[in-house]
Design a binder for these strands. Structure first.
Lengths: 250, 250
DNA sequence: CGGACATTTGACAAGCTTCAAGAGAAGTGG
DNA sequence: CCACTTCTCTTGAAGCTTGTCAAATGTCCG
């Protein structure tokens, strides 16, 4: 076990650790209470396990409370593409609420804690609390924007640019969540994950990572990522820090 | 001018041509009337023109009523990635409603007719008509699923598979809209568009297209696409016809 | 006819993938 | 505590897919 057990969801959403950070928009207490009453259960899943299978029916809607996960799709011969990474506060499973069949899989990278919402109740949320419906749409639009970025990377950036992009992007997201410690962030991906996220082979991913770290741009060690030259990495990736606004949290 | 002027939005949404097709979910007349009252204006834009610039502020939200368009992102040296294609009925501009700055551009491929909605009014829609808010979320989730597919293609499919995917995908979408005529559909993309959508170079796109058409799989002529061997194309692309359900329409 | 633009083709270069194999690191069981 | 296994990381070499360069052909339109 290389990842310590993550914080579990507190029994009361009012005590939610995430809501206290700058990363999320404040919500009226009565709405927080509604979210809690809406929540069907809390759950934990171990690192490496599948949270939602590709093609699974009746997958649940949930918020990732702690830990890392990713969405992915595969082709029949096993080629896998990671679509985006999921960090605490991300809402997962909207697509299957509408489609019944999940078109992508979700896998836990570390042990994860989830706040699980009941099936087929999404319409009730919109009807009773339009504000939350609006927030959900906000989250959906922002997840799409992450996928847009990844598509630009795999389609038009070369290997070096892709790797730089991934490192800066994930570092910034963790930073946003207040999860920088000693100038580094937890980084539970192995090189196969990076390769699958960037549309590269494992070998080429390794060589590209080595080149960047030999240039002194980053350090990846003991499951933690440190950006030694964040400006250079951002320049390579053309990463524009879009002055992230607080996100809604369900 | 190789594309005939598209149908303009009718003055009354109740007369909307799109609503009469199988592709869209029926909506209570009073909601249709609300959408009409919500609509700020109708507009047409000529083929090739920019509808939304990358980085534009205060871009509008609109439904594409007729014609083709696409969303894209570019890098500073001009490399362009097309994120997805927009066909009649698609809702455009949700991301910038939340972000104020548009993170992607939108360009008209053909002359287009748009139903334009006023700025900053999205929250009012959710509040007054949660049903429409729910539908908007549905559309957002589905657009993301298209981008997911494109990311899988550029990340993990080879050139032949990508081209086959694009041809089948766009043909099926047009078919869904009832726009097949004589076994072919309008296809206003040039090879540069195809290349930019698939993350390939123009030259390689050309050679791949030629190979597929030499094999008798498709025919691309006079701005129209005909699938001569749709099963073979679908097999190459691993395209699974997800038995499209009717979509909401705003 | 001339100009602009899209398509097509060939030749060559390069980036990335595949194959192969060794070195570390971490967990398992005797 | 130490072999043993397994998994991840690393490196070199060779080959193939794709990109780049260049130029010809075709098409549309003024």
């Amino acid at each position: 076990m290389n990842t310590p057990s993550p914080a579990s969801c507190p029994p009361h959403c009012r005590d939610c650790r995430l809501r206290r950070t700058e990363a999320f928009t404040p919500l009226k207490p009565e709405l927080v209470d509604f979210i809690q009453s809406f929540r069907a259960e809390t759950a934990t899943v171990p690192a490496g396990s599948s949270v939602v299978h590709e093609g699974q029916t009746n997958a649940r809607l949930f918020t990732l409370y702690a830990g890392w996960a990713f969405r992915y799709k595969t082709l029949s011969d096993g080629r896998r593409q990671i679509l985006n990474f999921l960090l605490p506060g991300d809402l997962v499973g909207l697509q299957q609420e509408f489609d019944s069949v999940s078109l992508h899989g979700v896998e836990a990278l570390t042990d994860c804690s989830l706040c699980v919402f009941p099936n087929d109740s999404l319409w009730a949320v919109f009807r009773e609390h339009p504000r939350l419906g609006y927030d959900i749409t906000w989250l959906a639009a922002h997840e799409e924007s992450h996928v847009d970025d990844n598509l630009l990377s795999t389609g038009r950036r070369n290997a070096t640019e892709r790797v730089a992009m991934l490192l800066v992007h994930l570092y910034r997201r963790m930073e946003r969540l207040g999860l920088v410690e000693d100038g580094s962030v937890a980084f539970p991906l192995n090189q196969q994950h990076i390769a699958d996220a960037l549309g590269l082979s494992l070998v080429h991913t390794n060589k590209t990572l080595r080149r960047l770290s030999a240039l002194g741009l980053h350090e990846l060690k003991n499951g933690r990522l440190r950006l030694l030259n964040p400006r250079a990495l951002a320049r390579i990736a053309e990463y524009y820090d879009a002055a992230e606004r607080p996100k809604p949290l369900l």
